[in-house]
């Protein structure tokens, strides 16, 4: 089985501090990590490899520094790594990112594509599903549990209040949640192997130009426009009403909602 795991290198948001004056994130000196949901995707692929034998390729799109995320994935046990990097890919929103990654995937063989649910820096959860759409693949998002039997996946898909049990034929794309598993550690041997020989293959626009529409990549191919970024101001302190009966409480709430034209 050939598995491709798509990952994103993100700033470790647990280490991010806010600039108290500008109200923006201070990214300087913040370590970069593999996005946690994506790391669970790597673990899912590696556990399939442990159980059934598989070739696991890890892929990321990003600046040359994203190489570090790929080396970590190799040190965990992935067999091959691909870095999609080109100035033309820069500034991409989820639409352009998905079209670029899908373009690269069209040049590769696979049975299963795994992406994390969403990245902790953008929180959109859009790239995985968009890749599946562009490749015309069945997709199951929010996977919290799965097993593989007879070329089919049996999955549990998480919702807020329930879950779905699904069966899907390969090839397919799934998006994984960090609750799915506990990602393994790298091994020391894996670390030295990851850097021992050049295991990271770089793919640029030239390599995939026949599989991607230039109008759909990079900043120019990104329909998303950010109008404004702002830090939400804190809400005013709530009002407390002690010693009221249930009926009085209902009346009070209804009158307040009417006052604000909510009902």
């Amino acid at each position: 089985m050939k598995i491709i795991v798509c990952v994103k290198q993100v700033p470790d948001t647990t280490e991010v501090k806010l600039d108290p004056v500008k109200g923006t994130l201070i990214r300087e000196g913040v370590p970069s990590i593999i996005n946690p949901d994506d790391k669970s995707g790597i673990e899912a692929a590696l556990s399939l490899k442990d159980q059934y034998g598989a070739h696991v390729t890890v892929l990321t799109m990003g600046p040359p520094q994203a190489d570090a995320a790929l080396r970590e994935a190799l040190a965990m046990g992935c067999d091959e790594a691909i870095l999609l990097t080109d100035r033309m890919f820069g500034g991409a929103d989820t639409w352009a990112t998905a079209s670029t990654i899908a373009g690269a995937l069209k040049t590769m063989e696979f049975d299963l594509i795994i992406t994390g649910r969403q990245a902790i820096d953008g929180d959109t959860a859009q790239v995985g599903p968009q890749i599946a759409e562009r490749l015309n693949l069945p997709q199951v998002s929010y996977v919290e549990e799965f097993k593989c039997e007879d070329g089919k996946l049996f999955l549990k898909r998480q919702f807020e209040d329930r879950y779905q049990e699904l069966e899907v034929k390969l090839p397919a794309l799934i998006t994984t949640l960090s609750e799915l598993n506990k990602p393994r550690y790298m091994t020391v041997g894996g670390v030295f192997d990851a850097y021992g020989e050049d295991k990271v293959k770089t793919i640029s626009y030239q390599d995939i130009k026949d599989h991607v529409d230039v109008a759909n990549i990079g900043l120019k191919g990104s329909p998303t426009r950010v109008f404004k970024s702002f830090t939400k101001s804190p809400k005013a302190l709530g009002q407390f009403h002690d010693g009221v009966t249930t009926d009085q409480a209902v009346e009070l709430i209804v009158s307040k909602l009417k006052e604000k034209f909510i009902i």
Binding site: R71, E72, A75, Y185, V191, A194, Y195
Partner: peptide
């Protein structure tokens, strides 16, 4: 070196 940094990351986390 890069591999020593990555190894250090592993040791620290462990």
């Amino acid at each position: 070196s890069k591999e020593h940094k990555l190894a250090q990351e592993l040791f620290k986390k462990f």
